[in-house]
Structures are given as structure tokens and as C-alpha cells.
């Protein structure tokens, strides 16, 4: 089985962001980048499927600037067979264009199954999986928490879970709980160094990138600081009494 995994490189979730002076984005120098955590679940599940079947191929794809090669190397070190880098300048692609670029390449690859994370940990759009599925005419199942085979997929819904049967090819998005991603082994890392990353220019897939975008980032800025709060004092009894009074009469949330 040929399994494609869509990954995104994002700033480590513990990173303190620094903003560019013109608020056009974040300063990426000095930032530690990682594979978006949900994408790791997706890759892990693809690798397990291949191992269980005893054959198959796992191909990871990403869109982004030079720095994203490191994320692809890590995927190769975890055990992916092939990595494809769609090269695009920092900030030059919106979510829709990202989905267009990926689906153009996926259309040529013809995978049997596509895994992605439920959302990227940077823009939290939860977008690319569903959009790519539509562009390729495949069914899409989000928030998968357990995968036995395509006839037995468990996914999270509001207030519970659903068991679903989905035909291949399809796109599945991985939710936390699906598995525990492995760490790359030393041997895996050595092997990954020697593997070639297939590189394409975004503009080779879509000639006029700007015209395909559906949204434009006008500004990125820190959220307004919350006004300083009150520290209550006194005995536990006094604090609780004061708190109930404040919640009722000042915050008016009771």
C-alpha cells in the first residue's frame, strides 16, 4: 500500500514568539522548529500500517521554505521511505494554496491512503486534510483516534465517538490518542542523511501563486494583555466568600 503523509513544520509549542517590527509575521531566527505534533501521530500510524502489512511505502510531503527540510529528515529518520519538499518562500502560501500544491503532487503519486494531523500547531486551521480530500475527490474523516483497517475507523465527535467504514483511497486526520509516536533511532538518522529529498518549486506546480490564494495575512500581533487580576487574601473561608461575591457582582458570571 502506498501511504502519503502530509506534514508541517511549526515552532515548538513552548516557544516565546517574537514579532517582526512591521507585524508581518514572527521572527523565525532562533526559533526551534518541530514537526507539528498531530502530524507525528499521522506518520506513526502510516509506519505501523506498513510494518503490519510487511510491505508498502510511506511518502511524506510538505510545503515551505528551506528550514522544512529538517522536518522531512526527521520523518525519514522515523522510517518514512520517501520525502517530497514543495519549496515555497516563507509566508507565500495560504491554506488554500497549500492544499492546491499538495493535491497536484498527490494526484501524480496516486496514494491509496493519505494521513495528516488534525490541525497544525501554528495556524490551527484544521484545513489542509479536508480541502485536499475534496480536490482529489476522496472521502475525508477527521479526528481519528483508532485505526484497525478502513472498515473499522474510530473518530471523535462532539460528546462521544463514531465507528466508521471508509473506502480507499481516502484522507484521514489524526487526533491525539491514536498512538505514541516513536523516536528516530540512530540507525534511522544515519540512513535518513543519505536519502534524497525530492524537491519541487511551488511555482512549477502553480505558475501564479498569488492569484490562487484566497486569504492574505494582513497583520500578526501579540494578543492584548489581560488586565492585571486581583489576588485575594485572608483565610481560605474569607477568600472563598470574597470570590463568590466577586464572581456574582463584579464579573457577573454566576
Amino acid at each position: 500500500m502506498k501511504i502519503a503523509v502530509l506534514v508541517k513544520q511549526v515552532p515548538d509549542t513552548a516557544t516565546q514568539l517574537r514579532f517582526k517590527p512591521d507585524y508581518s509575521g514572527i521572527v523565525s531566527e532562533g526559533v526551534k522548529f518541530i514537526i507539528s505534533p498531530y502530524d507525528e501521530f499521522a506518520l506513526e500510524e502510516a509506519l505501523r500500517m506498513k510494518e503490519k502489512a510487511g510491505s508498502g511505502e510511506v511518502i511524506v510531503l510538505t510545503v515551505g521554505p528551506d528550514r522544512v527540510q529538517e522536518a522531512l529528515r526527521n520523518c525519514l529518520a522515523m522510517g518514512a521511505d520517501q520525502a517530497i519538499w514543495i519549496k515555497a518562500e516563507e509566508g507565500s502560501v495560504d491554506p488554500y494554496l497549500t492544499a492546491v500544491l499538495l493535491s497536484k503532487k498527490l494526484d501524480l503519486l496516486k496514494p491509496d491512503l493519505i494521513w495528516c494531523g488534525r490541525q497544525a500547531a501554528d495556524d490551527d486551521m484544521a484545513y489542509v486534510g479536508g480541502a485536499v480530500a475534496e480536490m482529489l475527490g476522496m472521502p475525508f474523516v477527521s479526528l481519528v483516534t483508532k485505526f484497525e483497517d478502513p472498515s473499522r475507523v474510530t473518530r471523535q465527535v462532539e460528546g462521544g465517538e463514531e465507528k466508521i467504514e471508509v473506502p480507499l483511497p481516502c484522507v484521514l486526520s489524526a487526533q491525539k490518542g491514536l498512538n505514541e509516536p516513536r523516536y528516530p533511532s540512530l540507525a534511522g538518522m544515519m540512513k535518513a542523511k543519505k536519502k534524497e529529498i525530492e524537491t519541487l518549486n511551488a511555482s512549477d506546480l502553480v505558475p501564479d501563486l498569488a492569484s490562487v490564494q484566497k486569504t492574505h495575512l494582513e497583520k500578526l500581533e501579540p494578543p492584548p494583555a489581560r488586565p492585571a487580576g486581583k489576588m485575594l487574601s485572608g483565610t481560605p473561608e474569607q477568600m472563598v466568600k470574597e470570590l463568590v461575591h466577586l464572581l456574582k457582582d463584579e464579573a457577573k458570571v454566576l
Partner: peptide
């Protein structure tokens, strides 16, 4: 909100 609320993005 983006970056899980650490920043606000204004989108056109």
C-alpha cells in the same frame, strides 16, 4: 488566534 492564542492574525 494563531500559535494557540500567542498571536492574533488579521486576515483579508
Amino acid at each position: 488566534p494563531v500559535y494557540a492564542g500567542k498571536a492574533l492574525a488579521r486576515i483579508l
